[in-house]
Each structure stands twice: as structure tokens, then as C-alpha cells.
Design a protein around this nucleic acid. Structure first.
Length: 294
DNA sequence: TTGCAGGGGTCAA
DNA sequence: TTGACCCCTGCA
């Protein structure tokens, strides 16, 4: 059947989408934006999103999403995979030079996932001064201890715990996830949100600068985490999360000298505009895979 | 085997 | 602007 321009078939294991453009699972799931998708031996990926387990991969040129009903697709996955956006147009807008042209060609098929805001916030608080494998383990452990149990394909999975569940935990209970000093950040953020002192829903109503400032009120959230949270939950696309890697990459590819964080952000805002965040993702992935900026 | 540096940042002085 | 920070990993 047709749904918003896509041809969707319901099959026994889930659904399949024909002729989908600009969706490469490897580039999308391994470009550093998400922490809960794992590669299976057959090359597909299994992940937990909004309390549902799913598996995604290509078979004969069709994107197959297993353990998903057509209704789930309409309510969750269409939005999560950002399928309403024409990445062809995005690419046109951000490719203004040979560097971006190459980065976009290389990272062809990266989509920016619209992840659940609360989970995204905590994931990127955990990411501070940390590496991806360890971030994944902490998120996994936290879900295992405090998230709802789910089952798929004979295996047990866990949803990411909601704010109420983590707010109900003592600091010691959060510390068993081995997130170190970030446990205090998580504990406080959960309390602020659960008590209604802070609303993640409000972010969408604010302009980008206001949203960023508002997020900085949360203990443990600085500029980098705020920008990641806004971008990877699909709330704002004109942010340019600048960590030490992106800084080095921008210095090497564009500035040819040292540049301050502020300088880089201003440069990106002018050069890439409303899709600066997506440009950052292509650039970062390209640089990481080519070991630029090391 | 043990020891030490340093990591996709934030906070506080 | 600078150092400490929890925990883990990589590498002498």
C-alpha cells in the first residue's frame, strides 16, 4: 500500500519498503548519533526505540523492518527514520564546495534519526569525556536495570527507562551502571524533569538559541551535549555540535590553522545554514573513517 | 602483571 | 581559563 510517497508491503516478519532512497543502515547506525543499534551477522541491525524492538536491513533492494506493524510504522518508524525529509534537497543545500561534496558522497545514505528526547539527553550526558563502546554499555546496563523488559526473536531486550523510573532511583542505584561522575548529572536531570522544573517538550517551542540556553540549565549539560540533544532528537537542525574531533576536522579541512569553538560554530552557521547539523554528521563520519584530525 | 595517560565534556574556582 | 573528575581501555 502507499503511505506518504512510499510503497509499503506488509509481510510476515514486519514490513518492507520499496525503492527507498538515501538510507544506508551502516552509515546511519554507525555514524555516532545513536547507541542502541547492534549489527547482526547478516548485516542487519537490531535496536530498541520507544519501547519497541525492531530489526532493519536490506533484502533484494528493499528495506525490511522486522517486528513492526504498519500501524507502528505510521506512528513511530516513519518519524524515527526521518522518512518525511528529502535528503536529496538537504545535500544540495549543504554541498557548497569539494570537501562537502566528497563527504556527502562518502556518507551517502546517512539519515539523522529523530530519537526520543529524554533518552537522547541522557545518552549524550553519558557521552561526555567518554568513548562510544563504553557509552553503549552504560546505556545498555541502565536499560537492563531500570527499563521495561521486551522480547524479540527469543531474546530479551530492555526499553530505555523513562524519567520517572530514573528519578525514583537513588544516586547509588544509578551508580551501578558505572557511569562515574556522570551518575550525579543523570540523577539530577531526572529529578528536575520528573518534578516538572524542566520540560523537554518546551524545546520545540523555542528558537534554537533559546532552546540551547534552556538546556544549559540542566546540571551536566554544556554546549556540546545541548547541541547533540537538539540535533539527534530532531528538534533543531541548525546546530553544529562541536567536540574536539569536529574542531580538529574543521581546522584541518577548512581553517588550515587553529580555530576556537566559537569561530567554528559561526563559520558553520553561515556556510551550512538551516542544515548545519546534518552537514556536521556527514563531515564527522567522513573524517572519522578517513582518520582525518587524528 | 602493574602502572599510567587520556578520552566525542562539564563544573567550579 | 584551568584542573579535577569516574571509569575504562590501550599500551608500555
Amino acid at each position: 500500500m502507499k503511505y506518504k510517497g512510499y510503497e509499503i508491503n506488509t509481510i510476515e516478519e514486519g514490513i518492507e519498503i520499496e525503492e527507498i532512497r538515501d538510507f544506508d543502515p551502516v552509515h546511519t547506525f554507525e555514524c555516532g548519533q545513536c547507541f542502541r543499534w547492534r549489527r547482526e551477522p547478516d548485516g542487519s541491525y537490531t535496536g530498541v526505540v520507544r519501547g519497541k524492538v525492531a530489526n532493519a536491513g536490506y533484502i533484494d533492494g528493499r528495506l525490511v523492518i522486522r517486528n513492526v506493524t504498519f500501524e507502528d510504522f505510521q506512528n513511530i518508524w516513519f518519524d524515527y527514520f526521518d522518512l518525511g525529509r528529502d535528503y536529496g534537497l538537504v545535500k544540495k543545500a549543504i554541498v557548497t564546495d569539494d570537501i562537502m561534496k566528497e563527504a556527502v558522497e562518502y556518507g551517502n545514505g546517512i539519515r539523522l534519526l529523530r530519537q526520543e528526547p529524554w533518552e537522547t539527553l541522557i545518552s549524550f550526558i553519558v557521552s561526555s569525556n567518554n568513548r562510544i563502546p563504553r557509552i553503549m554499555k552504560i546505556i545498555e546496563d541502565m536499560s537492563g536495570y531500570y527499563g521495561k523488559e521486551l522480547e524479540y526473536d527469543g531474546k530479551i531486550f530492555h526499553a530505555f527507562p523513562d524519567a520517572g523510573s530514573l528519578a525514583a532511583c537513588s544516586l547509588e542505584q544509578i551508580q551501578i551502571c558505572r557511569a562515574g561522575y556522570r551518575c550525579g548529572y543523570i540523577h539530577k536531570a531526572a529529578a528536575q524533569i520528573e518534578q516538572g522544573a524542566f520540560s523537554l517538550k518546551k524545546l520545540a517551542e523555542l528558537d534554537t538559541d533559546e532552546a540551547r540556553k534552556y538546556l544549559l540549565q540542566l546540571y551536566g549539560v554544556g554546549n556540546k551535549v545541548a547541541d547533540c540533544m537538539l540535533l539527534y532528537s530532531g528538534i533543531k537542525y541548525d546546530v553544529f555540535p562541536t567536540d574536539v574531533w569536529v574542531k580538529r576536522v574543521m581546522e584541518e579541512l577548512y581553517f588550515k590553522r587553529e580555530a576556537s569553538f566559537k569561530e567554528i560554530q559561526q563559520f558553520a552557521a553561515v556556510k551550512f545554514g538551516e542544515y548545519a547539523g546534518i552537514a556536521q554528521q556527514y563531515l564527522f563520519y567522513y573524517a572519522r573513517e578517513h582518520r582525518i584530525g587524528i
